[in-house]
Amino acid sequence: MKGKKILLGTVVGILVLAVAVQVLRFGYTQFMHSSYPRPEEYQALVTQASADTGVNEALIYAVIRTESGFRPQVESHAGAIGLMQITPATFDWIRFMTGWDEPLTSEDLNDPAVNIKYGTQLLSILLTEFETQDEALAAYNAGRSRVNQWLKDPECSKDGETLSYIPIEETRNYVKKVEDARQTYQRLYYDTASSQK
């Protein structure tokens, strides 16, 4: 009888532990999804921008999260506007580079559809120019001309193509933050095993 009670207690303990693990896993997943959201109102826009440019959706979400925290009306002290924080000068440059002649003004950057379309196009241009994500992200944050200068500096680049050192701390942190977020978005939403949980 004593052996049966011990066995029953062990089985109950294992069941309670299994339930607790599932509750913790569910809570962790919910927490991660709320910390790294894909707001429903932006999903079709991100999917379309990704399809049009070939830029990974996880990277687009990571840039939006890092740049604006998904607040479409935010404006930086440097005058960058909207979800992907595009300055009017950069907006004009993207339009020049793409040949897009839509009748838009910089105020239209407050529109998520415009901002995501042009911000993703900028990422695409930078990824094509620099060929690696870290350098493209550094250019997105600090500007193309700075990154090109750094690539010519042997203290920043050993091969002239990749940065071994980013001299501006804000840009170093930005590149890491976006990459960490991209990895998390990829794991949460796009990796097959994770997305089925």
Score class of each variant (00 low, 15 high):
33 H>Q: 12
34 S>P: 05
35 S>H: 15
35 S>W: 14
35 S>A: 15
36 Y>R: 12
36 Y>C: 13
36 Y>V: 10
36 Y>Q: 12
37 P>Q: 15
37 P>I: 12
38 R>G: 02
38 R>M: 14
39 P>D: 06
40 E>P: 11
40 E>L: 15
40 E>A: 15
41 E>P: 08
41 E>I: 11
42 Y>H: 06
42 Y>T: 07
43 Q>I: 10
44 A>W: 04
44 A>R: 12
45 L>I: 03
46 V>K: 08
47 T>D: 09
48 Q>Y: 01
48 Q>G: 02
49 A>C: 11
49 A>K: 10
50 S>C: 13
50 S>N: 13
52 D>M: 06
52 D>E: 13
52 D>I: 05
52 D>R: 10
53 T>G: 11
54 G>E: 11
54 G>S: 12
55 V>P: 14
56 N>W: 11
57 E>V: 05
57 E>L: 07
59 L>T: 09
59 L>F: 08
59 L>R: 14
60 I>P: 12
61 Y>F: 08
61 Y>K: 06
62 A>I: 07
62 A>C: 10
62 A>G: 12
63 V>M: 07
63 V>A: 04
64 I>V: 04
64 I>K: 09
65 R>V: 01
66 T>Y: 12
66 T>C: 15
67 E>Y: 01
67 E>V: 00
67 E>G: 03
67 E>P: 11
70 F>G: 05
70 F>D: 07
70 F>R: 09
71 R>H: 13
73 Q>M: 10
73 Q>E: 13
74 V>D: 02
77 H>F: 02
78 A>V: 01
79 G>N: 01
80 A>T: 00
80 A>H: 01
80 A>Q: 02
80 A>D: 01
81 I>V: 11
81 I>N: 03
83 L>Q: 08
83 L>I: 04
85 Q>K: 13
85 Q>M: 11
85 Q>L: 07
85 Q>C: 09
86 I>Q: 05
86 I>A: 01
88 P>M: 08
